[in-house]
């Protein structure tokens, strides 16, 4: 039975906020795919509610939030609350990529973010973190 069962790490790459670049998100999406992940890409300018909807419905193991706009202190906790509302908080690995000032990191981690990767983090580091920490599903 177990050899029949087929699992893949499923990720949602979400781009929040109003800044217009999605080059970064595309690079991440492709790197994740090349690492063997199944990536759901949902497009630009997403509201927190949309990201929650996508993360819940797609039942992703990993939610990668790409954020550059500086509104992380309001947007990210909103997403975490949404995940909680739909019982998806506990077993979704949430990572944030973008420019997060040091003084904001603690707040985001308290909100439930599992890891924050600043600009210039080698992609392998992010991928390795996901491989080591993605929740095991039965």
């Amino acid at each position: 039975m177990s050899e029949e069962s087929q699992q893949n790490i499923r990720c949602l790459v979400a781009k929040v906020g109003l800044d217009g670049h999605d080059r970064g998100a595309h690079v991440i999406t492709r790197a994740f795919r090349d690492a063997g992940f199944e990536v759901i890409y949902s497009g630009l300018h997403k509201a927190p509610e949309e990201i929650v909807q996508a993360a819940v419905q797609e039942d992703v193991d990993v939610l990668g939030i790409s954020i550059l706009s500086g509104a992380h202190n309001t947007l990210v906790p909103k997403i975490m609350e949404g995940l909680e509302e739909y019982d998806a908080f506990e077993d979704t690995l949430v990572i944030v990529g973008g420019i997060i000032p040091d003084e904001d990191r603690e707040g985001l981690e308290e909100a439930g973010v599992d890891a924050i990767f600043g600009p210039g983090t080698p992609m392998e580091e992010t991928i390795e973190f996901i491989e080591d920490n993605a929740p095991q599903r039965d």
């Binding site: 999406t29 795919r33 992940f37 199944e38 990536v39 759901i40 890409y41 949902s42 497009g43 996508a54």
Partner: peptide, 8 residues
């Protein structure tokens, strides 16, 4: 790996 983009 795969990229699934219909959701966009």
């Amino acid at each position: 790996g795969a990229v699934l983009g219909d959701r966009i």
